[in-house]
Simulated assay, not measured.
Amino acid sequence: MSTFSFLLEGFRNLRTTGTFTRSSPALCRAAIDRIDFPAAKVIVELGAGDGVITKHILERLPADGKVIAFEVSPDLCDDMRALNDPRLIVAQDSAENIRHYLDQIGADKADHIVSAIPFAALPEDLGKSIVRAAKDTLRPGGCYNQVHYSLKTKSYYEDAFGEVETKRVWANLPPAWVLYCMR
């Protein structure tokens, strides 16, 4: 998907994309910080968009690892499928259904979860339900990293995980936050 096409997708579906621009390389690096890649077998990505963060994950993921990337936009899912990586499972589905996809690949838990879901644009009950599902399917010691453009929904992660560390990423348009939670 071209930058212009991504911009149009953002305008058409801001509620699900959460932004008009792709994540910068600096934001992508911050989003996957704290992931123990050598030991990671299953990484779940929520709100994967066109796969810009997914590509960074795949670059560092071991050959025997899997990424389950959730996205609700059919066009953005097509972009991710075009990455043509056998380690990538594109789940065109709600992130509430993490358990179902882990079961499909025979995984008890995800090692790490990265999310760029725009929770501020979703109903509060749905957002909290997704965060709880993420926590419930994350292995002890695993990290949950959330990309946001505001801290409006920080309480979702505090309620689920307790302590939340935040990092501001200025080298992104617009500047963004990454919230780090450990299970």
Rank of each mutant, 00 (worst) to 15 (best):
V52T: 10
A48N: 03
S2A: 13
P86V: 00
D108P: 08
A176M: 05
A134L: 02
F11D: 03
D103G: 09
F161I: 11
E165T: 06
K109G: 03
W170R: 12
R60P: 01
A30E: 01
A91G: 08
P38V: 07
V147F: 12
E124Q: 15
S5T: 15
R99T: 06
D136R: 12
P123E: 04
T21G: 06
T19V: 07
P140V: 08
R12S: 06
R168C: 09
F20Y: 14
F20H: 13
L138H: 02
T19A: 14
V147I: 14
A82M: 11
S73K: 10
T3N: 15
L88W: 00
C143R: 14
P175N: 04
I68Y: 02
G162N: 10
L126K: 12
A171G: 05
S129W: 00
I53N: 02
Y180H: 12
A48C: 05
T166F: 12
D79G: 13
R29P: 03
F11Y: 10
M182Y: 15
R87V: 00
N84D: 14
F20L: 15
D36Q: 11
A40E: 05
Q92S: 09
T3V: 15
I130G: 09
E165C: 07
R81L: 10
L83M: 13
G127A: 09
T54K: 06
L8S: 09
Y157S: 09
R81I: 08
E9W: 07
K167Q: 14
K152C: 14
V114W: 07
L46Q: 03
N97M: 03
V42C: 09
T137K: 13
I57D: 04
Q92G: 08
Y180S: 13
Y157D: 11
P62H: 04
G142M: 01
P118N: 08
L61R: 06
I113Y: 01
V44Q: 05
F70M: 10
A160M: 11
A30R: 08
N84P: 02
R139F: 00
L102A: 04
I105V: 03
I89D: 03
T137A: 13
L179D: 04
G65L: 05
L27A: 11
K152M: 14
F11H: 08
L27M: 09
H148A: 14
V90E: 02
D50L: 12
E158M: 13
V72D: 08
P118K: 10
L88C: 02
Y144F: 15
V42K: 01
E59A: 15
L173A: 12
S2F: 13
A110L: 00
A63C: 11
L173N: 10
G51Y: 02
P74K: 13
M1Q: 14
G10L: 05
I98V: 07
A69V: 00
E165H: 09
E59T: 14
G49S: 05
I117V: 13
R168D: 08
A171C: 09
P86W: 00
A69C: 11
N97S: 02
D36I: 04
R34L: 10
A63N: 13
I89Q: 07
V164H: 05
I32M: 13
A48H: 01
E165S: 10
R29G: 09
P86T: 00
A91S: 07
E96P: 06
H148Q: 14
D136F: 01
K135D: 01
D108E: 13
T21N: 11
F4L: 15
D159Q: 15
G127V: 01
K135Q: 10
I68V: 12
V169R: 06
H100M: 12
